[in-house]
């Protein structure tokens, strides 16, 4: 499904309806499907020297917060329901609720940051660049090899091997369904389902007990080279970049 992020509504409100409220509703189900760290992220975290302090922007259920017990990670997410799950796991690290564009962190103090499958949820080019700027400005500044490093993952437009079938030429702004299974539907979510701003629909309208509910999440699918260009626009430099399983990733820093 193609999404129209540049309609009359402001991007903040658009994301509130098509990203934030959706993750609040699907948090438990989403978390249950997110437990295995991706290999490149896992390696990035394990290679950090003992005593390193870093950020996980959009930490979700906190699955990356306990990869390396010799570093300290501060995770944040826009969804309080996901942060609650991360917090309840009693990790040695910490997590709280924050917006990636207004992070409560001092500039220039962190050894590293990760932001995995997060900034593709921002619905305008300006906000995507601003989110990268927000992340890299928290890093210790310095040229290659001397400053802090951020690892950023986004969904790729080029994923013709996936079941979704997007590829070059397809619209980059899409809705991606999340089918919430019956056991995760909370009492009282009926009112949300009927909220016209949410694009959520029951499979069978009017039935007293919903079988499942489909939510639509907004994504901006990155095309080849776009993530590197956004890092440059944010004032950063690229150390490494690549493609892995339907995602573009970049390791970047900031001279300061």
């Amino acid at each position: 499904m193609s999404a129209k992020p540049f309609a009359a509504v402001a991007p903040e409100q658009y994301e509130a309806a098509h990203v934030h409220q959706v993750y609040q509703q699907i948090a438990s189900h989403f978390s249950a499907t997110r437990f295995k760290p991706w290999p490149i992220v896992d390696r990035f975290l394990r290679e950090m020297p003992t005593g390193s302090v870093g950020l996980d922007i959009g930490c979700g259920n906190g699955k990356y917060l306990n990869v390396n017990p010799n570093i300290y990670m501060v995770g944040s997410d826009r969804s309080s329901n996901l942060v609650q799950i991360a917090y309840d796991r009693k990790l040695i690290h910490d997590s709280f609720v924050a917006d990636a564009l207004d992070l409560p962190h001092p500039t220039g103090r962190f050894d590293f940051a990760i932001s995995i499958a997060v900034i593709h949820h921002f619905s305008s080019p300006e906000r995507r660049v601003a989110s990268i700027k927000s992340i890299i400005s928290a890093l210790k500044p310095g040229p290659t090899g001397q400053g802090g490093k951020a690892l950023i993952y986004v969904w790729a437009l080029e994923q013709n091997n996936s079941r979704r079938g997007w590829d070059e030429g397809h619209s980059q702004d899409v809705f991606v369904p999340w089918v919430l299974s019956k056991q995760y539907i909370k009492a009282g979510s009926e009112s949300v389902k009927k909220d016209s701003t949410l694009d959520a629909e029951a499979n069978e309208e009017g039935k007293p007990q919903a079988k499942e509910v489909t939510y639509q999440r907004y994504y901006h699918l990155y095309r080849k080279g776009e993530l590197e260009a956004d890092v440059a626009a944010a004032g950063g430099y690229v150390l490494e970049s690549g493609y892995e399983k339907d995602n573009w990733w970049v390791i970047c820093g900031i001279v300061g």
């Binding site: 944040s76 309080s80 917090y87 709280f96 924050a98 409560p104």
Partner: peptide
């Protein structure tokens, strides 16, 4: 003032909450 409740701090600003 940012609230901490049940161990979780919330740093959302008024404009994030509409």
């Amino acid at each position: 003032e940012y609230n901490i409740h049940q161990g979780i701090a919330n740093f959302l600003l008024p404009n994030h909450l509409g």
